[in-house]
Amino acid sequence: MARKDAILKLRETLVRRRDALRRALAGDLSLLQELHQTKTGDVLDAAADTVQDELNSQLLEVESRELTAIEDAIEAMKRGEYGNCTDCGKPIPLTRLRAVPYATDCIGCRRKSELSSDDSGGASWNRVFDNMEVDSV
């Protein structure tokens, strides 16, 4: 399959995911507003509601970031810039784009970025999960 055909299929995927996220976010926001209007029973119910609200808020944030990335990818397609690494300018392999259709960088540049962010005190999730495995053994 030619790269252009694959990118057209990826556009369809992005549009479907964008529409699904928009519907989900609209529903989640209205549900959160509805839940805030209802009164809770006791202190434990209020605490459970607060925890649930925080989890829902974090999920909304993640979905919102994904929606923004998808919309940016669709705009890049319109400009003819989709599929090229923003750092090195080389075409992003189709395998990466199929895995993460809104990717803006190739694997090499992503690795460099992650390595440099590790030096600046950023969390390395691989190390966090590796430590969890050692602790649970």
Rank of each mutant, 00 (worst) to 15 (best):
T86V: 05
E114Q: 10
E71W: 08
L44I: 07
L60D: 14
Q58H: 10
D19P: 05
L31P: 00
E54A: 12
A47V: 14
N84A: 03
R98T: 02
D42Y: 02
V43Y: 10
T40Q: 03
D105A: 08
V43T: 13
N126G: 15
H36R: 15
T38F: 11
L44Q: 10
L21H: 15
D119I: 03
M132Q: 15
K4L: 13
Y82E: 03
D130Y: 00
V137G: 15
I70F: 12
C106Q: 01
R17N: 10
D45A: 15
G89P: 09
C85S: 08
D28T: 08
G108I: 07
A26Q: 13
L14P: 03
L8Y: 06
R22W: 01
V134Y: 03
T95L: 11
G27M: 12
S64W: 04
C88S: 08
V100Y: 12
M132S: 11
L55V: 14
R98Y: 01
A69Y: 02
P101S: 12
I7K: 03
E114V: 04
I7S: 02
S113Y: 12
D130E: 12
A20L: 11
P101G: 14
R79P: 05
I7Y: 01
L67Q: 05
N84V: 00
R3M: 08
L25I: 07
V51D: 02
K39V: 10
M1N: 08
T13N: 12
R16Q: 09
I7N: 05
F129A: 10
R22Q: 04
Q33N: 05
I7M: 04
D45C: 02
L21S: 13
R22F: 04
L94T: 07
A76D: 10
K4P: 03
L97H: 04
K78N: 06
V15E: 12
A123Q: 09
L29W: 14
R98K: 06
D72L: 07
Q37S: 13
D87G: 01
F129I: 11
W125D: 07
G27N: 13
R65E: 13
V134L: 07
N84E: 01
I107C: 03
V15A: 10
L14G: 05
C109N: 05
R23S: 11
L29Q: 14
E81L: 07
V137Q: 13
W125N: 03
D87I: 11
E81P: 01
V128S: 09
T104M: 02
R17F: 08
S117R: 13
R17I: 11
R65K: 10
L97Q: 05
N84T: 03
E61I: 05
A20T: 11
I7R: 01
R98F: 05
Q37M: 07
R79Y: 09
G121A: 06
A24N: 08
I92Q: 04
G122Y: 12
Q37P: 00
R127K: 12
E12T: 09
L94N: 07
R110Y: 00
G83I: 01
N56Y: 04
V134C: 05
Q58S: 12
A2I: 08
D5L: 12
T86F: 02
D87E: 15
A103P: 02
K4D: 15
V137W: 11
G83A: 00
V128F: 09
A103E: 02
K112I: 09
D5K: 14
Q58W: 02
